[in-house]
Design a protein around this nucleic acid. Structure first.
Length: 657
DNA sequence: TCACGGAATATTTTT
DNA sequence: TATTCCGTGA
C-alpha cells in the first residue's frame, strides 16, 4: 500500500502532470482517494484524464493488477492502457480493463460454482438468442395457432429490456410495446421457456453475465470481499450509459476504501434501450456519500462555430446537468445543412465533397459519415465503391453475426458442447434433404448416444441416408480420430462447408474471404472455449463484407459508422446523413418525451464528433410507406437554426445524372 | 417431409 | 432488406 503522502505530491514524478493537464483534469488525476464523479463535456479530454490517472496511480506505486478500468468497449480500454503505457511504462499494460460483460465473464468463470452453475457455460450472442426464441415461438404458434406473435427480434428486445431495467415483462410491453398487450401471455410463456432452456443447457446470454455477477456479489459476501479488496481503484468510463444492474455491481465492488471514479456526460446518454439511465449519474453522489464532483468544461476538439451549434442542440434538452462548454479553438467555418433531392443525390453529394476534401489534403481516415441506423448507408456504400473510395463500416450488422460465419462457428460449438441444440439444428439444416423434422430426429438420437458430438457417428442412418449427412459424419470422424488442433479443425470444417456456401450464396467469393479472415483470427487461439467466448463477447466491430484485418491505423479509409458506434471518437470532417425529420428523430420516438430526448442527445453526440467541418444532409421528398406521408423537412433538432449558425445549401447532383 | 417461390410485413441503436 | 408465412410440387 503506497503511503498517502507520496500520492499527494508530484515532485518526484517523471510525468509532468501540471504542464500537460488543465486545472480540472489535474484535480481529477491527482485526487486518487475516495469517490469521485467527473462530468466531462464532449471533447473535454475525458480519455486523456483517465489515461493520466492510470499512469498516475501506477507511477505512485499502486500495483497495476489492483486497478480496474471498466469501459464501454474492449477497444476503448486497450487504447487507454496503450496510451498510459506510452506515457509511463509497460506496467500499465497489466491494469485490469474491459467491459462490464467481459469482467462478468472473468469473475463468473471463477466463481459460478458458488451459484450452483457450471463454470464452463457457453455464451449466447444476439443471433443465438434469437434463433432459440424463434424455435420457442414456433412451438407456440403451432399449438395455439396464434399468428400475431411479435418477431423474434422484437421478443429479444423486450426480454433484454426487462432484464436490464430489472422490471417485469408486462411493464415493458405496457410502456414500450402497447400494441402487443394482447399477446402478453404468450410473450411471458416464451420468456420462461427461454430462461429455462438457458439454465438447463448452461448457456449465458449477454444479460446473464451482468445478472449472475450481481447475484454472486449480493449473495456471497465472502466472495464479494475477496474481489472488492483485490481491486483497490475502480474507474468507469461512459457512466451515463450504465444501467441499474451495473450501478449496483459497482456499489458492491467498491470496498471499504471507496476508491471509485466514474466519468461521464449526461448529455451523451444514448443507451436507454438497453436499460441505461442517465439519472444514474445524478444519483452517484447519493450512492457514494462524500463524492467529489469535478466538471471538465473546456472543449479541445471543435472550432467555435461547431460548438455554437452543438450548444443550441443540447439546450433543447429538458433535463440535464448544465455545463458551460467553451473552446479556445478559433476559426473554422459554419456548419452546413444540405438539401438533396433524394437519397442518391445525397450520396453523390457526399462522394463529391469527399473528393474535394481529398484534393485539399484531408486524409480519408479523418472523415466520417454518421447515421442513425445501419441500413442508412446502403446507397452511399454503392456510390463510394463506384467512385473507388475505400471505406470501413462500423456498427450495424456485424461480421460474426453474418450467416456464413455463424455456420462455421456452429460446427465448432457442437464439438465444444454437444448438447447445443441451436447449433446442431443450424448445421443439420445446411444439409440437403434435411429439414426441421429430420434435424430434430437426429438431434434426439445424438443426445441419446451420450458420447458427445461423435454421437452423430453412431446414429442409425436408415431414415437419413443422405450423402450430405455422410460428409458431416466423415468430417466429425476425422476431427475426432486425429484430435485436430483448433486451427486444423477449423480448416477441415471450412473445407467441408465451402460447397454448401457456394450453393447457397451468390456472393460466395466475398464470404469465402471472410472465412479466411476467420482462420487468421483463430491462429491466435489454442483453446476452443476461449475462442468461442471471445467471438461472442469481443468480436471485431466491423460490419460484414469488410476486410477487417487487424486494425491498421495507417490505413487510409473513410469511416462509415452508426452514431452509437462513433461514441468517443472524433474526425476532422463529419457528415451526418438522413438528418430528415421522420428518420431522425425516428417516428417511433415522437410519442414519448423521454424517447425524443434520447434522439436529441443522439444528434448531439453525432455533431460533437467534428473538429473542423460539420455537414448535415437530408434527402427531400421521401415517401414513408408506413406513415403514408412525404417527409420533406430537416430534423427538428436543427431546423430552426439561423443561417449564421447553420448555412443552407442544396446538392442537386441528380439533375445531371 | 423438404425445397422453393411469391407475397406481406416492418423500429432503430449494442454488450 | 430480412423475415416469415403459405401454397405447390416432388
Amino acid at each position: 500500500m503506497p503511503d498517502k503522502s507520496s500520492l499527494s505530491t508530484n515532485s518526484k514524478f517523471q510525468i509532468q502532470y501540471e504542464a500537460q493537464l488543465n486545472a480540472s483534469q489535474l484535480e481529477a488525476v491527482m485526487a486518487t482517494e475516495g469517490p469521485m464523479l467527473v462530468i466531462a463535456g464532449a471533447g473535454s479530454g475525458k480519455t486523456r484524464t483517465l489515461t493520466y490517472r492510470v499512469a498516475r496511480l501506477v507511477e505512485g506505486g499502486v500495483a497495476p493488477s489492483s486497478i480496474l478500468l471498466l469501459t464501454f468497449t474492449r477497444k476503448a480500454a486497450q487504447q487507454m492502457l496503450q496510451r498510459a503505457t506510452r506515457l509511463l511504462d509497460r506496467r500499465c499494460e497489466n491494469v485490469a480493463g474491459g467491459t462490464f460483460h467481459s469482467f462478468g465473464n472473468l469473475i463468473l468463470r471463477k466463481y459460478a460454482g458458488a451459484l450452483g452453475i457450471h463454470s464452463n457455460f457457453a455464451i449466447f450472442d444476439r443471433v443465438d438468442a434469437e434463433a432459440l426464441i424463434s424455435l420457442l415461438r414456433k412451438e407456440i404458434t403451432q399449438t395455439t395457432k396464434n399468428r400475431s406473435l411479435p418477431r423474434k427480434h422484437t421478443l429479444a428486445n423486450i426480454f433484454s429490456r426487462a432484464v436490464n431495467k430489472m422490471i417485469p415483462i408486462d411493464d415493458v410491453v405496457y410502456d414500450d410495446y402497447p400494441h402487443l398487450t394482447d399477446e402478453l401471455e404468450s410473450i411471458n410463456s416464451i420468456f420462461h421457456s427461454y430462461k429455462r432452456y438457458k439454465s438447463e443447457n448452461n448457456f449465458f446470454d449477454f444479460d446473464d453475465l451482468l445478472i449472475y455477477l450481481l447475484q454472486l456479489l449480493r449473495t456471497h459476501p465472502d466472495i464479494r470481499n475477496r474481489i472488492a479488496s483485490s481491486y483497490r481503484y475502480v474507474m468507469v468510463d461512459e457512466y451515463q450509459d450504465t444501467n441499474k444492474i451495473q450501478a449496483e455491481i459497482l456499489y458492491l465492488l467498491t470496498g471499504d476504501n471507496n476508491n471509485i471514479m466514474v466519468v461521464g456526460d449526461d448529455s451523451q446518454s444514448i443507451y436507454a434501450f438497453r436499460g441505461a439511465n442517465f439519472r444514474n449519474i445524478m444519483k452517484f453522489p447519493e450512492m457514494f456519500p462524500g463524492t467529489r464532483i469535478i466538471a471538465l468544461e473546456e472543449n479541445y476538439r471543435s472550432v467555435q462555430p461547431i460548438l455554437n451549434l452543438t450548444n443550441i442542440i443540447i439546450e433543447q434538452a429538458k433535463e440535464k446537468y448544465s455545463k458551460n462548454l467553451f473552446t479556445r479553438k478559433s476559426g473554422g467555418s459554419v456548419p452546413v445543412l444540405v438539401e438533396a433531392q433524394d437519397e442518391n443525390d445525397q450520396s453523390l453529394f457526399i462522394v463529391d465533397k469527399i473528393q474535394q476534401l481529398g484534393r485539399q489534403g484531408i486524409e480519408l481516415n479523418q472523415i466520417a459519415v454518421l447515421f442513425r441506423a445501419g441500413y442508412h448507408s446502403f446507397d452511399l456504400e454503392i456510390e463510394l465503391s463506384r467512385a473507388q473510395l475505400p471505406f470501413i463500416k462500423v456498427g450495424g450488422f456485424k461480421f460474426v453475426e453474418s450467416a456464413h460465419i455463424k455456420d462455421v462457428l456452429a460446427h465448432l460449438r457442437v464439438i465444444s458442447n454437444p448438447k447445443d441444440r441451436i447449433s446442431w439444428y443450424r448445421i443439420l439444416l445446411l444439409i440437403e434433404k434435411v429439414g426441421p423434422a429430420t434435424a430434430q430426429k437426429i438431434y434426439n438420437a445424438v443426445i441419446g448416444e451420450a458420447s458427445g458430438y461423435t454421437g452423430l457417428l453412431t446414429v442409425k442412418s436408415k431414415a437419413i441416408a443422405g450423402a450430405g449427412l455422410k460428409r458431416l459424419k466423415d468430417l466429425f470422424s476425422i476431427i475426432d480420430t486425429y484430435a485436430l488442433p483448433l486451427e486444423k479443425m477449423a480448416e477441415a470444417i471450412i473445407e467441408y462447408y465451402l460447397p454448401i456456401l457456394k450453393d447457397r450464396y451468390d456472393d460466395h467469393p466475398k464470404r469465402t474471404k471472410d472465412l479466411e479472415q476467420l482462420l487468421t483470427i483463430m491462429e491466435r487461439y489454442n483453446n476452443l472455449e476461449q475462442f468461442l467466448t471471445d467471438m461472442a463477447l469481443e468480436p471485431p466491430n466491423t460490419a460484414m463484407g469488410d476486410t477487417f484485418t487487424v486494425e491498421t491505423p495507417a490505413d487510409d479509409r473513410l469511416v462509415l459508422s452508426t452514431i452509437h458506434s462513433a461514441k468517443g471518437l472524433e474526425w476532422h470532417t463529419v457528415f451526418i446523413i438522413w438528418a430528415l425529420d421522420g428518420r431522425f428523430p425516428s417516428p417511433h420516438a415522437l410519442h414519448k418525451e423521454e424517447d425524443l430526448e434520447e434522439e436529441l442527445r443522439l444528434m448531439y453526440v453525432a455533431a460533437t464528433r467534428a473538429r473542423e467541418n460539420l455537414y448535415f444532409t437530408y434527402p427531400n421528398q421521401v415517401y414513408d410507406r408506413s406513415l403514408g406521408i412525404v417527409l420533406n423537412s430537416p430534423s427538428r433538432f436543427i431546423d430552426m437554426m439561423s443561417d449564421s449558425i447553420l448555412e443552407k445549401q442544396s446538392a442537386g447532383y441528380r439533375s445531371g445524372y
